[in-house]
Simulated assay, not measured.
Amino acid sequence: MGYSPERKAAVLKRMLPPGNIAIRQLSREEGICEATLHKWRAEARGKGQLLPCADTSPEGWSSRDKFAAVLETAALNEADLGEYCRKRGLYPAQIAAWRVACEQANDWDRASTARLGQATKEEKKKVKDLERELARKEKALAEAAALLILRKKVSAIWGGAEDA
């Protein structure tokens, strides 16, 4: 059974915030199979439409849905953004926070590399300091061993009087 594009659009619109009707409920009300509704939602998401799950608040939306909201609002002025948020049950502050998160996601790689480089530099310095200390202690140990050997030789040459 084929559905008209108008009917499909109307049903998808009922899935949008702020109504967010669950697919199970929508299936009962419209008489459309749940699998069909899931397929329609997946297709709409694939085309970039914002269709979050009905049982989650905006903070529980997937990253994909949040990113879609950020993209949809990127070129809106303050008044249009307010209208967009009212229609979808969002706050402008949420959109702003999601935008910052998206921007930081792209900087993560660079920031991570910088942190890794700094950590590597610190580790190299620590290794160099430890190697320097180890060399100093090896020299001291070699000197102590040489003094012990000399003491034994002196004792052997001049007799047992130097046994302290």
Results as ranks from 00 to 15, higher is better:
Glu6Gly: 01
Glu6Tyr: 04
Lys8Leu: 14
Ala9Asp: 10
Ala10Ile: 02
Val11Asp: 00
Leu12Met: 12
Leu12Cys: 09
Leu12Arg: 08
Pro18His: 10
Arg28Gln: 10
Arg28Leu: 15
Glu30Pro: 10
Gly31Ala: 00
Ile32Tyr: 03
Glu34Leu: 11
Ala35Leu: 13
Thr36Glu: 02
Leu37Asp: 03
Leu37Arg: 03
Arg41Trp: 02
Arg41Lys: 15
Ala42Ile: 12
Ala42Asn: 11
Ala44Met: 09
Gly46Asp: 04
Gly46Thr: 05
Gly48Arg: 11
Thr56Asn: 11
Gly60Ala: 02
Ser62Val: 00
Ser63Asn: 10
Arg64Trp: 01
Lys66Gln: 05
Phe67Asp: 06
Phe67Asn: 07
Phe67Lys: 13
Ala68Thr: 08
Leu71Trp: 00
Glu72Ser: 11
Ala74Val: 05
Ala75Ile: 03
Glu78Met: 08
Leu81Met: 06
Arg86Thr: 01
Lys87Ala: 13
Arg88Tyr: 05
Gly89Phe: 00
Leu90Met: 07
Tyr91Ala: 13
Pro92Gly: 02
Pro92Met: 01
Ala93His: 04
Ala97His: 01
Trp98Arg: 02
Arg99Lys: 12
Gln104Met: 15
Asp107Asn: 15
Asp107Ile: 14
Trp108Arg: 15
Trp108Phe: 10
Trp108Cys: 10
Asp109Thr: 14
Ala114Val: 13
Gln118Thr: 08
Val127Lys: 10
Lys128Met: 07
Lys128Arg: 10
Asp129His: 11
Glu131Phe: 05
Arg132Thr: 08
Arg136Leu: 11
Lys137Trp: 03
Glu138Val: 08
Glu138Met: 13
Leu141Glu: 02
Glu143Asn: 12
Glu143Tyr: 10
Ala144Thr: 07
Ala144Ser: 07
Leu147Ser: 09
Leu147Val: 09
Arg151Tyr: 06
Lys153Gly: 00
Val154Ala: 13
Val154Pro: 00
Val154Gly: 10
Ser155Gln: 15
Trp158Cys: 14
Ala161Ile: 13
Ala161Thr: 09
Glu162Gln: 13
Glu162Asn: 14
Asp163Lys: 13
Ala164Gly: 04
